[in-house]
Simulated scan of single mutants.
Amino acid sequence: MRRGGFAHDTGEGGVSEHHLRGGGDLIWELGTAYFGCRTEDGDFDPGEFAEKSAHDAVKCVSLKLSQGA
Rank of each mutant, 00 (worst) to 15 (best):
H19Q: 04
R3G: 13
E40D: 14
E48D: 06
T10R: 03
H18R: 13
A33N: 11
D41N: 08
C60A: 09
G47T: 10
V61R: 01
A69M: 13
L65K: 10
G42Q: 12
F44M: 04
H55L: 10
G4E: 10
A33F: 14
G47H: 14
S62Y: 07
L63S: 11
W28Q: 03
S66M: 08
L26K: 07
H19K: 02
K59I: 04
G4Q: 14
Q67P: 14
C37D: 08
L65F: 10
W28L: 07
C60G: 01
V58S: 06
A69V: 15
A50P: 00
A69P: 15
A54V: 00
Q67Y: 12
G13T: 11
F35S: 08
L20A: 12
E17H: 10
D41F: 05
E48S: 13
A7D: 15
L63G: 05
T39Y: 04
A7F: 15
T39Q: 04
E29Q: 09
F44I: 01
L30H: 10
A69F: 14
G14W: 11
H55K: 04
G14N: 12
W28T: 01
G11Y: 01
F44E: 06
E17A: 13
D25C: 06
E48A: 12
G14R: 12
H8L: 15
D45P: 14
G5A: 08
R3S: 12
L26I: 09
T32V: 05
G14F: 05
F49S: 04
V58D: 01
E48K: 15
K64L: 14
L63F: 14
G14Q: 13
G14D: 11
G4W: 11
E12S: 04
F49P: 04
K64A: 14
R21Y: 03
C37E: 05
D56E: 09
V61C: 05
M1V: 15
G5K: 13
F49W: 07
G24E: 05
C37V: 13
D25T: 08
T32G: 10
D9P: 06
A57Q: 12
A33W: 10
G22C: 04
Y34C: 12
L30G: 05
C60N: 01
S53A: 08
E48Q: 15
E12P: 04
E29T: 07
K59M: 07
D41M: 05
S16M: 02
G42S: 02
H55R: 08
S66E: 06
K59A: 15
A7G: 13
K52F: 00
F49A: 03
L63T: 03
D41K: 13
K52S: 00
W28C: 07
K52G: 00
G11V: 01
V61Q: 04
C60P: 00
R38D: 08
A54S: 12
V61S: 05
R21A: 14
E12H: 03
L30Y: 09
V61Y: 09
R3F: 06
Y34W: 15
D56W: 08
L65C: 07
E40P: 03
G13K: 14
P46M: 07
G13P: 01
F35D: 15
R38H: 14
G23V: 08
C37Y: 08
H18E: 08
G24W: 02
E17N: 01
T10P: 11
E17W: 10
L30F: 10
L26C: 07
A54E: 03
V58N: 02
